[in-house]
């Protein structure tokens, strides 16, 4: 498979990422601080069929809000353009297979890492082997993102969305709405559903340069790597996995929403290995009230937690991103 060219970055202005908004939303305060008095455009495609249940959120935003209804628009496209829908579904099936195979490889790599880590050998060699394990995870992550990109690019070349009349019509409508708003607000929900709808309509290209405020799944899709994670799944244990590349409006960080519910914060070894696997990206755990702000793709301020390569969780991290590695790693060539 040929390696796809990376698309040029979307031109970005102010991007503010927030922690979860379920309990006491603070997004309205953030809008006010940014001087945004509305109207704003809202994406709630992560909530799929419940996309339009937006009354409570609009109240919290406190400004005039236009729900872009990306999920409903996508449903209209699939119903009205069955040929495209079939091809799209095939691509999605393929992406799911790739994800599942990548996941199998992660598990086997994890098994190998544990087996080696249990050996009673000299600490220096063990540390080197540990680094090999981390590198293998990193390579798997990288290969997975490349394969996802390649598949999406091949699909885009075979099925140029701008040539699909129905999509083109929706994009024109979306562009018209976006020309009347001050900012784009992206809520959380199902991260893959959200990512796919944003990509289907190339919404972030249409909103280029506009302030974007996003949280949870919405924040995840704006980074360069979307990480799926849960240390307490109902089936016992799981390993974090990359879903896909994001839109890179908030580069260099890995967003981990709702960490107290999803991350084993006391597991120093697990956090250390995860932070090293994600390096040089900064692992930012975002509870309610957390904020990370980018200007033109550069991180300018933060108020969140950072998972460090020493295994500690740095409370009150203010950015910018720097990583400190344990000294044993330096010994690995």
């Amino acid at each position: 498979m040929r390696t796809p060219e990376k698309k040029p970055l979307i031109r970005s202005g102010t991007v503010v990422l927030l922690g979860p908004q379920q309990t006491t939303p603070d997004v309205g305060i953030v809008l006010a601080e940014l001087g945004i008095s509305g109207p704003v455009a809202l994406v709630r495609a992560g909530y799929q069929e419940r996309e339009s249940d937006d009354a409570a959120l609009i109240t919290a935003l406190g400004v005039k809000t236009i729900n872009l209804r990306l999920h409903a628009r996508a449903a209209e496209v699939f119903a009205g353009d069955p040929e495209f829908a079939r091809a799209y579904q095939e691509r999605q099936n393929r992406l799911r297979h790739i994800q599942s195979f990548y996941r199998v490889r992660l598990d086997k790599t994890d098994d190998g890492a544990r087996t080696i880590a249990a050996r009673h050998i000299e600490p220096e060699l063990l540390a080197q082997e540990d680094q090999v394990s981390v590198d293998q995870f990193r390579q798997l992550d990288l290969d997975h993102i490349r394969r996802c990109r390649a598949l999406r690019q091949a699909f885009a070349e075979s099925w140029p969305i701008r040539e699909r009349p129905l999509i083109a019509r929706h994009r024109a409508e979306l562009a018209a709405v976006l020309s009347t708003v001050e900012a784009l607000v992206i809520a959380g929900g199902h991260v893959a559903a959200l990512l796919n709808r944003l990509k289907l309509f190339e919404l972030l290209e249409l909103a280029a340069g506009m302030p974007v405020i996003a949280w949870s799944a919405g924040a995840m899709v704006l980074t360069d790597r979307i990480l799926l994670f849960h240390d307490y799944p109902p089936y016992g244990s799981d390993i974090a996995q990359v879903l896909d590349a994001g839109f890179e409006l908030a580069p260099g960080i890995v967003v981990l929403p709702d960490p107290r519910r999803r991350i084993r914060m006391e597991d120093r070894e697990g956090i250390q290995r995860f932070a090293r696997r994600m390096a040089p990206g900064t692992c930012v755990a975002m509870e309610h009230g957390a904020r990370v702000k980018f200007e033109g793709g550069v991180l300018v301020e933060a108020s969140a937690m950072r998972l460090t390569a020493t295994g500690l969780v740095e409370q009150g991290w203010t950015g910018p991103a720097t990583q400190t590695f344990p000294p044993t790693q330096a010994a690995y060539p």
């Binding site: 379920q22 799944p233 879903l243 929403p257």
Partner: peptide
Amino acid sequence: LREGLSWLMPGPILHVYD
């Protein structure tokens, strides 16, 4: 059943971030 069904036919819990 919880452990078995959630592993065989996982729901979107890994994908949903509210």
